[in-house]
Design a protein around this nucleic acid. Structure first.
Length: 270
DNA sequence: CATGACACCTGCTCGC
DNA sequence: TGCGAGCAGGTGTCAT
């Protein structure tokens, strides 16, 4: 999916067009992405509400409404949001705003989800997600604690949203390469020194990607409908066979970890 | 509790 | 040109 940098980019792009707006009508074109709520209740719950704030939590876009409820939009593999722009065949939900513009959630594969939570429910949902890697409080000790006692491969562990928020398949490969850690190693084998390198790598790659407006490999679009610019700056992802930028050894690829593509350097990552 | 298989969807690319 | 297989950045559920 859009991982943290991509969702952050979308949020920054759509925020100015959404905050302070009142939702005058809601059109749900495909109800299968609504979770734990039906189409009618979703429309009723959002219509007439003012959008007080737009935020990101992990890989979710969060719309905070003036009645204390929150729409949580999880773009899945191919979801994105825009305010304005042309209607798209794959638009799933369209919100008409008091400005006269339309906000749209577009998702070709519809693996995304949208929730509309009332106060007790959104806190619970939020609490189930791990720490934000770009918060100051995300220290090596916090990362180490999150990896402790887990035999699962470290790559899978850092992609687990309950352990750590926002890292997905692309940035997991990138950060582990930067930190020189073999992605298949048990999470519990990561030393304090390695945790420090890994924390730094995660923070660095996410920040740099946000600066580049995210990574477009195939489908991802920013909140202005354009591709991100970070793909060309990836060190290992989708670079199988090409030389490692550090040592020149051809980059290896495997599907052996959680049946997801993983890219790494045999020589640099131990 | 951990792990793996599978499911949810559609579109694109590749090989025959 | 056509067609099926395999693959794609995420995550929830179920069986073991």
């Amino acid at each position: 999916m859009p991982e943290l940098p991509e969702v952050e980019t979308i949020v920054r792009d759509i925020r100015p067009g959404l905050e302070g707006q009142r939702i005058t009508s809601v059109e749900v074109r495909k109800a299968d992405i609504l979770k734990r709520i039906g189409r009618a209740a979703f429309i009723r719950g959002m219509s007439g509400r003012r959008i007080a704030a737009v935020a990101r939590r992990a890989k979710n876009v969060v719309l905070e409404l003036d009645d204390g409820s929150r729409a949580v939009i999880q773009p899945g593999m191919t979801g994105s949001m825009q305010v304005g722009g042309r209607d798209d065949t794959y638009d799933v939900v369209r919100w008409t705003l008091s400005s006269g513009k339309k906000a749209r959630y577009t998702d070709v594969r519809r693996l995304g989800r949208i929730y509309l939570f009332k106060p007790p429910a959104w806190q619970a949902h939020d609490k189930a997600i791990g720490p934000e890697p770009l918060d100051r409080s995300f220290t090596p000790a916090v990362l180490l604690e999150r990896l402790r006692g887990r035999k699962t491969p470290v790559k899978k562990a850092i992609m687990d949203q309950r352990r750590l928020a926002g890292v997905g398949n692309i940035y997991a490969s990138e950060a582990l390469w930067m930190a020189g850690i073999d992605p298949s190693r048990p999470a519990s084998s990561v030393t304090p020194e390695e945790a420090e390198r890994l924390r730094d790598a995660i923070v660095d790659v996410l920040r740099r990607s946000i600066r580049g407006r995210g990574t477009t490999v195939r489908d991802y679009r920013t909140g202005t409908g354009e591709p991100g610019n970070f793909a060309g700056r990836l060190a290992v992802y989708e670079r199988a066979g090409e030389p490692c930028l550090r040592c020149g050894t051809p980059i290896a690829a495997t599907h052996g970890i959680d049946a997801r593509s993983t890219y790494f350097c045999y020589r640099c990552q131990r």
